[in-house]
Structures are given as C-alpha cells and as structure tokens.
Amino acid sequence: MIDAVWTNLILNPMVNSLLLIYQFLFHNFGLAIIVFTAIIRLITMPLTLRQQRSMEKMQEMQRSKRWQEIEKKHKGDRARIQQEQMKLYRESGVSPFGGCLPLLLQFPIIIGLYQAITRALPTVPQALLDLTKHIYPFVPASLIPLNSHFLWWNLSQPERVVAPEVFGFGIPLLTILVVATSFLQTRMTTPPSGDSQGAQMSKMMSLYMPFLFGFFAYSYAAGLALYFVTTNVMTIAQYAALGKVNWRSLLSLRGTS
C-alpha cells in the first residue's frame, strides 16, 4: 500500500518529468538532472524560506537577553533551564520545531529525486523492466535507454578518477566538487551562532559533513553527485539573492562565531 502510494504519487511523476526534461534537453541526462533539481528547488522554495525564517527567529531568541539570563540564573539545573526556555518559546510564539516541519516535508522530495535519478538509469535487467513499466503513455519509450554520459562521467556508475595518465594519479573531480561546494554552502549559509557551543558545532559540521557527502558522491552513482553539486550551488545562489550569505563566516578561518 505505502509502496504503491509512494510509487504513484512521488516516484513515477518524478521519473517521467525527468524523462521529459531529458527529451527537451537534447538527450543530455546531466543537463536534465541540473534542470530537474532547479525546478524541484523552486517548487520547494516556500518551504525553504519558511524553515529559514523559523530558524532566524529561534536564533534571535537564543541571543536575547532573557535567554542568557535564564541560562545564567539556572546554571547547572538543566531541567529548569529547559522548562524556562520552553516557556519563553511559548510566550514569544516561536515553535522550537518550526524549522523541522518544512524540513520533514522536503524528505519525500529528496528521496524521490534520488530514486528517480537511479531509476532512470537502469544498470541491470530488473531495473530496466521496472522503468519500462512506469513510463507514462505520453512519454516516448524510444527515450530508453537514456544516454548516461555527461562530460567525462558515466552518471549511472560511481565516479571513477579523471585523467590518471596526465597526472600519474587519478582525480575524482566530481567528488572534489561535492566536497568544495558543500563546504562553501555550509560556511556561507550558516548565520553566526549566538553561543559558543553552537558555533563549535557549526564549525565541526562545516568540516566533516562535506567529507561525508564526498564519500556519498564517490560511492553512489555519479548522477547523485551531480545533484549534490547543483543543489549546493543553488542554495548558495538562493541565499545570495536574499542577501543572507554569511561572507564573514566564509572568510574567517576561526569558525562561524
């Protein structure tokens, strides 16, 4: 039941949209992933903005004098601090989970996008059979198989190194791009934190998360890595357009605080 709902409401529309975009973009699956990711980001923009606003409100509150007083007054009494902070949340009309709901709503979209990319590039007979069964009648079957080559990558396979004969060792270029854009995105879109612990956490994440994504990019199909790069660049662009980019954090070597 859940499988059927998921497949019919999320996955199939995404796969078929991806195929149609591919058809209009000169049978270039790399371009199709980039445009498809951009469209999805635009559709989910209201959720993203809501999440962003909610986080800003929360941060403002955490920097407020009253918040600091609560922490100072009840130092050592964690339960009491939390109780008072919850009270403050209620009084201010801010939900501590306000940033989470839009995030949770985006989960199915992200998962669907990932699955749509992998489903559109079957690498075994069963996957090809699944794909042929889920194509809408108005999508030409002649699109199959998709051309999975984009620049020097095969998007259906994990990235292999580039130009080993030139440098004497291979360069996983797409993985490096994922790590670099993830790092930039984190640094540029993380607002200054109100407390040292938060700043420390942000700093740690800005260091290790890009490598985690790099690991994903290197291990999964290269199409997914292309999605990561696209979504990172779009996030930075979106923040820049809204004037929210934290340039200080990017230039600072001492972290985001």
Binding site: M55, M58, Q59, Q62, E71, K75, R78, I81, Q82, Q85, M86, Y89, P96, F97, G99, C100, T186, T189, T190, P191, S193, D195, S196, Q197, G198, M201, S202, M205, S206, T256
Partner: peptide
C-alpha cells in the same frame, strides 16, 4: 553556556 535540547542547530 548550556544549549537547550530543543534548539536545533541551524546548519
């Protein structure tokens, strides 16, 4: 400084 368990780190 203590951080509330309800405060979700932004990044």
């Amino acid at each position: 400084m203590t951080r509330s368990r309800f405060a979700v780190p932004t990044s």
